[in-house]
Design a protein around this nucleic acid. Structure first.
Lengths: 191, 191
DNA sequence: TCGATAAAACAACACTCTGTTCGATAAAAA
DNA sequence: TTTTTATCGAACAGAGTGTTGTTTTATCGA
């Protein structure tokens, strides 16, 4: 049984202010150049209060990231009706575009490169399952390498997509990725 | 005309010791957790001497990276005889496997994610040129997105390849990437 | 509305790393 | 050998950290 957390209004506000402050600073510089002192003075929160909830700026960032991760994963898993690889990818892209402002910061040049790849791994199990049904003889290592290729390719496109200011729709991005990953360069260039 | 640099023997040794020290420490933790004090005491070099050549650990790392970058770019450009995309990729993979020990550190979990993508951009011009000859009607943006996809896919595979301890040969890796990027998933899975 | 509770602010501390300056020492180049 | 210069050693203020107290203030529940 889940114990209901009665969170003091002040706690929510404090955490929210610290998050906003960090994200604001991350528009200017990477996380490892941002000090606790800086986050606090920008948020007008006592430095001591920071230590009540977090021990490092990294920890604060990870909590922000984890919240987004959970939201995206939930989006993907709750649309289980048509469970295909491309529908999973589309769900991810849609969830990202829904969190445009946040993602612009998290996936910017100062963002966490590892985090985007962690998000792409949400589709890992489904992909491997699907592919090993199609090609049961292919060794696991090969499947993994192919997944790595596509997942990293997607991550790169997402970064480019975000930095361009979401010019394409999620559907367009999913379409491009679907073409390139299913049919490869040749079909893409010859179409 | 190139001015010949007469470098004091001591300078070479000092720089070499500092490089080795940083790389040693990067086996344990990421660059942003490594202090100048630490690098120097591990190298048994006075902290003052560090500031003679570098101002931050980042700068030292970038010099190491740039040397490797130049070596790889030179490898790719000096094999201009058969100038194709896949031959460029193979050159990159070969150059990486030649610098196994260094790359294991630079592209590890504590490594610089941006640097590997910079290396992949060595093949950018050649790819775009080749592709736009094949498909002159395709808009630049689409070409760029496709390049981004493949370059990031390659970078991901390289990371996985290195972390596995170079199990495959450069040729095998180039072969896998060639299959997946030319013919896509379907041909790959059906073959 | 009031009182208990707990969050947040304020203040102070030792500690580490930084960036810099200065003079002394040791090794290389001339 | 003499000159040059790379390196060392010591010392400094400044900034950020992590921690421990105490005080103030807001929230929640009775």
């Amino acid at each position: 049984m889940m114990i209901e957390k009665k969170t003091d209004r002040r706690i929510k506000i404090t955490k929210m202010l610290l998050r906003q402050s960090l994200l604001e600073l991350m528009k200017e510089k990477p996380i490892n150049k941002i000090t606790i002192t800086e986050i606090c003075s920008h948020a007008d929160i006592n430095r001591n209060t920071f230590y009540t909830y977090y021990s490092t700026p990294d920890e604060l960032l990870h909590q922000i990231e984890n919240d987004l991760y959970d939201e995206i994963r939930h989006s993907v898993e709750s649309s289980l009706q048509i469970s295909t690889v491309s529908s999973s990818l589309l769900e991810i892209f849609t969830a990202i575009s829904k969190n445009e402002d946040l993602c612009k910061i998290l996936f910017s040049e100062f963002g966490d490169k590892v985090f985007l790849r962690k998000i792409m791994d949400i589709a890992y199990d489904r992909c491997i399952t699907e592919w090993s049904e199609i090609a049961p003889d292919l060794p696991k290592r090969q499947l993994d390498l192919v997944y790595t290729f596509i997942a990293n390719g997607c991550a790169g496109i997402i970064e480019s997509w975000i930095q361009s200011g979401f010019k394409e729709s999620p559907e367009e991005i999913a379409q491009i990725i679907n073409t390139i990953s299913s049919n490869g360069l040749q079909t893409f260039l010859m179409k």
